[in-house]
Design a protein around this nucleic acid. Structure first.
Lengths: 153, 153
DNA sequence: TATTGTTATACTCTATAACTATA
DNA sequence: TATAGTTATAGAGTATAACAATA
């Protein structure tokens, strides 16, 4: 124990938390996520809608279950997301000839355009928030983050 | 557009999301956070209670506002956290001679012991989840994460 | 006037369980 | 039996606004 009466040192002396990976991940994520929302504006896509739209644009006819699996969230959680994207006119729930259970998600022209615009904004904002890291450092960071995930999947 | 009818490629072909810093941060954080909860068990401390307790143990007599500021959350959000820690018997809300508005947070013996145990468990679990990264890589990752935050504060 | 702790409230994200229609 | 999508529901986590006590 370092103090018994006063402890204003929380600002000067580094806390134990600082060397926790989880804590640092969370704090960094909150910064980047804040940038994300700022980049996409008041009624812009949420991170999860953006992620889903990204997959739909890149893999047209992907099913809701596939999107959920890829994003690592539950099937049920995807309903609201797809509802949102459909309401915005960014995709349609289409049908698949062979299997009438499946909803194939197809991006609209609007959806593809909106994604392109949003993607550029998000990337630019991320670049700005990371501009005090060198290109090399940014690449290393992403590589290491992927490596954490690599073991799980 | 790469496909018009079928797209099972979401698993083979890397998605656009993969090079977003935010996306990779979130996925990595979810893995580490899952490990955290597994390490602390069913009725264990939540990440935020653990973080708060960590500060209280390291900086006895820290105020709620100081904890909130350090963790980057709202003052109001801390009430429930401190309630939780108090109910567990890990700290007490004490008073400060000079200023009767402030609650100085003081860890109990139980609190210090619980933190030591939890801290070890969390660190071990993090180490295990990161064991496929070299020591050098782990250190680099934490350093880069801190660097993102360094600009904001 | 400003600050500390507090309450009330609401919103987002997410998970679980159960249902339906298909397979 | 199993799977895709859906609904209902509940629980974290967090933010905002307003309040009382105190500075």
């Amino acid at each position: 124990m370092k103090h018994t009466l006063q402890s204003a040192d929380a600002e000067t002396e580094p806390s134990d938390l600082e060397d926790h990976v989880g804590y640092n991940l969370k704090r960094a994520y909150l910064i980047i996520q804040g940038g994300f929302r700022a980049a996409l504006g008041e009624d812009g896509l949420s991170p999860r809608s953006y992620s889903a739209l990204s997959l739909v644009v890149q893999y047209p006819n992907i099913s809701q279950s596939e999107v959920a699996r890829t994003l690592g969230i539950e099937r049920s959680g995807l309903v609201a997301i797809v509802d949102d994207l459909e309401k915005r006119g960014y995709l349609i729930r289409s049908t698949v000839p062979g299997d009438r259970r499946v909803h194939a998600l197809v991006p609209t022209k609007d959806g593809m355009h909106a994604y392109a615009t949003a993607s550029t904004a998000v990337r630019n904002r991320e670049k700005r928030l990371m501009s005090h890291l060198s290109e090399q450092e940014q690449q290393t960071l992403v590589d290491l983050l992927k490596k954490i995930r690599a073991r799980e999947e």
